[in-house]
Design a protein around this nucleic acid. Sequence first.
RNA 1: GGCCCACUAGCUCAAUCCGGCAGAGCAGCUGACUCUUAAUCAGUUGGUUGGAGGUUCGAAUCCUCCGUGGGUCACCA
Length: 511
Amino acid sequence: MGAFLWTEECTMAWEPNDLEQRRLQKLQRIRSAGLDPYPARTNRTHTAAAAVSALEREGENVAVTVCGRIRSLRLMGKAAFAHIEDGSGKIQLFFRADALGELAMDRLERDYDLGDFVEATGTTVRTRAGEPSVLVSDFRMLTKAISPLPVVKEQQVDGERVRYSAFADVEERYRQRYADLASNAEVRELFRTRARVVAALRQFMDQESFLEVETPILQPIYGGAAARPFVTHHQQLHQDLYLRISFELYLKRLLVGMYDRVYEIGRDFRNEGVSFKHNPEFTQLEFYAAYLDYNQVMELAENMLAYVARQLTGGTSIESEGQTIDLAPPWRRLTLRQAILDTAGIDYTQHPTAKDLAAAMRAHGHQPDPRSSWGKLVDSLLGTHVEPTLIQPTFVLDYPRDISPLAKTKPNDPTHVERFEFFIAGMEMGNAFSEINDPLDQQERFLEMGRLYDAKDEDAHPMDEDYLRAMRYGMPPCGGFGTGVDRLVMLFADRRSIREVLLFPHLRNRE
RNA sequence: GGCCCACUAGCUCAAUCCGGCAGAGCAGCUGACUCUUAAUCAGUUGGUUGGAGGUUCGAAUCCUCCGUGGGUCACCA
């Protein structure tokens, strides 16, 4: 749904259904009684959790006023029970006609529904069943909910939460994430986990003396990754701009500017297909550290993930799709050549041209894209054979030069660069290398890429002259690192789809 | 973009294979009930079966096209 322009002809898209009609009538009845169904102020003295602990510490008869959404309502004629929930948790309300009067009981029965926000004043009490509750002496509407939330009923059985109904339609959960969050407590918990992952990453970087910075999202020239960008336009400047596909080239400019260690956590945008591990916008952590090479970056990376795990769980082991994954350093390290040899049975160094390698792949039953470069073929072997097998955290190192235009060539091997990717749970989680700081080498690499991609035309990447100018002032030797934060959250929250860990994943417009 | 699967009441699902009155639970509504907690008990409303077309005496069901989502493959310096 795009911008909405109001005209006389416009009709509201919303047509109240029967349940909503009912609630609109109740809303009208509340107003007719001279009550405000949407008051601006509340008199809350306790959160639900605070009221419960007040009962536990001070006993019964503590005066409290609590607020929250009605989650259950059990009407029993001259008595009623409800659970309300706020951000701290739930508490039970106990209504009695002899305490409230018949009029108030009638009002509760007639006008209050699941999903409404209410305020209740009363005293703490333990019911016969032992449940901490508020014996209500007064209550009022805080927000009349018009649309009914999906009802999710559950009970505790031997400490386990058993669910009897649900809001489970994946598409509706994503399109109406607010309803998903309101109905499904474990979804709320998941995004708390996400926030803790991000906070732990930030703590780790700060402890390691990195400076957090912010670089442009709107860029005149995009770069730093292999991806198609989104294009937008600045009206007044008459300038096309790109949404960034990585932070890399800007962060390294900052090393030229004499910050030793910088990092950024932010959004990248890539105009590509969507999948269970790709969303058009996603969150990335990149850091650059002067005087480190890719071996030292590996140590930082494994320490970082182990730190996050300890912050979240107290240990370094996590469960992912039924498998136990141990993030404790040091992680396994193997070269890309060895990894492909082990899993695909092809030693790509024996097939040094695209034609040779494609032939070898065909001999192994592959159907390689005949337009692929040698490096692309190697990369596809990595994706199909190696990646799915790497469940425990693994660094795969030393990549072909022609798919790594920003990474330093290995001293004794001009065909490979000092680059690693790391894999956990069968998924690529990040990418890093010893950064090229020779401006003339970098320029040559850009030109090579330009030549390679001119042929295919559509992905031809522009030369970033300003970046080369920065390099010419001198950038210290450094290591750089990038990781997909959403994928880390998938790992720590044990979710199979990136959409599950994005609050508002990208979906096609309806209609 | 290719292929496969799904779309039925506000929610979760059945009926689809093999065409024959579109059903259940929850929610809602009416009533009973002053310690319930998936409250209970009795009664009850609610449907353009994702959309359009076709086949047929008859379509939720079969066919075609479209839409959306999921999966998978492809794409993704």
